[in-house]
């Protein structure tokens, strides 16, 4: 039976348009999935735009590619933390698909904790928002270095924050027994969103920390 006819029956089956069969659920999930990926494609343009701004602006008079000398240890740690969180997010999804609820819930908790550590790392160490703990290197108003660093990390942090909220929500619903091995689109959506946030960082990390000649910015 082709997808199109399935979709049609799903729409006509009940007057209130809510067909509860597994086939209809899969059909809805297919649509949701495509929608989610189109959303990623759309968002990619923000991040590509920011990267373009970074490579356009961080150039010195001689045309050399530059970067501000940020704290490499902080950069490496938050990167690894985010990567680890992606592993646990994946583990959560695999677990619910195997009906392993304990593992599912714990993996979500660990993912959220790691995400929070990433966020705190960015806010305290990258941004220096709490100067009594750590004196930051840059302020937003420090020329194009400040503007782009805060622009890129800020946009990314906003996505991390929303991801953490989603994970919390999925965890709460999961505890109430909301997902099953056959039906867990909510988990899948949150998972691929979280991986997407990780994916963005895969390109932001080298762009911010690794590429170009270091330019001392110590305060």
């Amino acid at each position: 039976m082709s997808v199109a006819t399935l979709g049609h029956q799903a729409d006509h089956g009940h007057a209130d348009g809510h067909d509860d069969s597994q086939a209809a659920y899969l059909e809805r999930t297919r649509r949701n999935r495509l929608g989610m990926w189109l959303f990623f494609a759309s968002e990619a343009f923000i991040f590509i735009g920011l990267l373009a701004a970074r490579f356009y602006l961080w150039v010195d008079e001689g045309g050399q590619m530059m970067r501000p000398e940020l704290d490499q240890v902080v950069g490496l740690i938050v990167t690894v933390v985010l990567l680890l969180s992606s592993y646990f997010m994946n583990r959560a999804e695999v677990s619910i698909a195997n009906n392993n609820r304990r593992d599912f819930l714990w993996s979500l908790v660990i993912t959220a904790i790691l995400g929070t550590i990433f966020l705190v790392g960015v806010i305290i160490f990258e941004w220096g928002m709490l100067p009594f703990i750590f004196e930051g290197h840059l302020k937003p108003s420090d020329g194009v270095f400040g503007a782009v660093v805060f622009g890129m990390t800020g946009m990314h942090a906003l996505h991390v924050l929303s991801g953490i909220v989603l994970i919390g929500n999925v965890w709460w619903l999961g505890r109430k027994g909301h997902f099953s091995a056959e039906r867990h689109w909510g988990v899948e959506a949150t998972a691929i969103y979280w991986h997407y946030v990780d994916l963005v960082w895969i390109f932001f990390y080298p762009a911010l920390y690794l590429i170009g000649h270091a330019y001392g910015v110590g305060h």
Partner: peptide, 24 residues
């Protein structure tokens, strides 16, 4: 300090994430 290598490695990582974690 090579821009090209950095981007290439980024793409390698992206491949693994998109393929295995996000099961595109």
């Amino acid at each position: 300090n090579s821009f090209a290598v950095m981007m290439l490695l980024g793409l390698v990582k992206a491949y693994f994430v998109v393929n295995y974690f996000m099961h595109i």
